[in-house]
């Protein structure tokens, strides 16, 4: 026993510089992540600013019961899931398609220029991107100006309930499609060239080769990214929706994050309830991510962190 403790201390002493290097970052994670995590007790309390987080009275699960009878919260939960699942359908395949197209493109230099254009919007904030795109689509914007000039009538694209969600998918792709395609392009470039030669011998054209060689060749990447995306179902693009939302389309676009924001900065904020909604979201998110990681691990042999 004594020998074991002595060995432990010796190991710790031996790694003293390693702990020194860790200390700075660990302090950061404790102060800015773990202390706020302990703040989730607010979800079980009636927050009183004077008494602080720890002094406020307990309310048990009242806030959580309230989530399911508050129409705004229920709608936000429904929208979060709906928007994300449709994102998987309309948003997820686009970078794959783009990667296939880029792979078929001839001319190295022009390809590089195109890729610079495709990936550039990824590096802009949603404030910038939404301002540019909303200006483009607004009543006084370019699209409507063209419609008028060819004899049509102005149309308010941004406040149409039916158009808003498709607009979310389109603008998200506009910003991220090029960047997301890089992973697929890399996966394509690692496919064994002899497979293509064999396919050519068998008489397959470029299209058939893309369908029967390229796509199966990047299947593992596609599945991994798909599972990851399903794992992120609770994070449905807060900033994008936050900037593009307007009162006319609130009913189809209010997600949990925007809902939490709006009730927190309400005329009568209820910090306890806001925290409870946030915790509800975080817990589902945690379960989904751990599940996604487990599936990927089973499938690939290694997960996201190990």
């Amino acid at each position: 026993m004594q020998i074991r403790t002595r060995r432990l201390f010796r190991d710790i002493w031996k790694a003293r510089y390693v702990y020194m290097l860790l200390s700075f970052g660990l302090a950061y994670f404790i102060v800015f992540h773990y202390v706020p995590m302990s703040g989730i007790v607010l979800a079980f309390k009636k927050y009183n600013a004077r008494l602080g987080i720890w002094g406020s009275d307990w309310t048990g699960l009242d806030h959580f019961r309230r989530i399911f009878i508050t129409p705004g919260a229920v709608a936000a939960i429904k929208n979060t899931f709906e928007i994300n699942l449709t994102r998987l359908l309309f948003q997820f395949p686009m970078p794959i398609l783009l990667a296939l197209l880029i792979n078929e493109m001839r001319g190295t230099r022009i390809k590089r220029i195109y890729q610079t254009i495709f990936t550039f919007p990824h590096f802009l904030s949603w404030v910038v991107v939404s301002t540019i795109l909303m200006n483009f689509l607004a009543n006084s914007g370019m699209v409507n100006a063209v419609i008028v000039s060819i004899g049509g009538k102005k149309y308010n694209f941004l406040s149409d309930e039916r158009l808003f969600r498709p607009l979310l998918y389109i603008t998200q792709n506009w910003k991220e499609m090029g960047w997301s395609s890089i992973i697929y392009i890399a996966a394509i470039s690692s496919i064994d060239l002899s497979l293509y030669e064999a396919a050519t011998v068998d008489g397959a054209g470029r299209f058939k080769q893309a369908l029967y060689v390229t796509l199966p060749g990047i299947k593992a990447t596609i599945i991994t990214l798909f599972i990851l995306q399903v794992g992120r179902v609770m994070n449905s693009g807060f900033e994008q929706i936050f900037y593009m939302q307007n009162p006319a389309v609130k009913s189809v676009s209010d997600i949990l994050d925007t809902y939490i924001y709006s009730i927190t900065f309400d005329a009568v904020p209820n910090y306890g309830f806001s925290t409870a909604v946030g915790l509800f979201k975080s817990v589902i998110n945690l379960v989904m991510l751990i599940g996604a990681n487990a599936i990927i691990k089973k499938f690939n042999g290694s997960g996201m962190f190990n």
């Binding site: 660990l26 102060v31 706020p36 995590m37 910090y271 945690l286 962190f305």
Partner: peptide, 28 residues
């Protein structure tokens, strides 16, 4: 390997999966 490595690493990674949320973070 050094004592506590795995625990410390997982503790840091956990912050990627779970967070206190907007209000507790703001209050901190």
């Amino acid at each position: 390997n050094y004592p506590g490595k795995k625990f410390l690493f997982l503790s840091v990674m956990f912050t990627m999966l779970f967070s206190g949320g907007m209000i507790p973070t703001y209050l901190q």
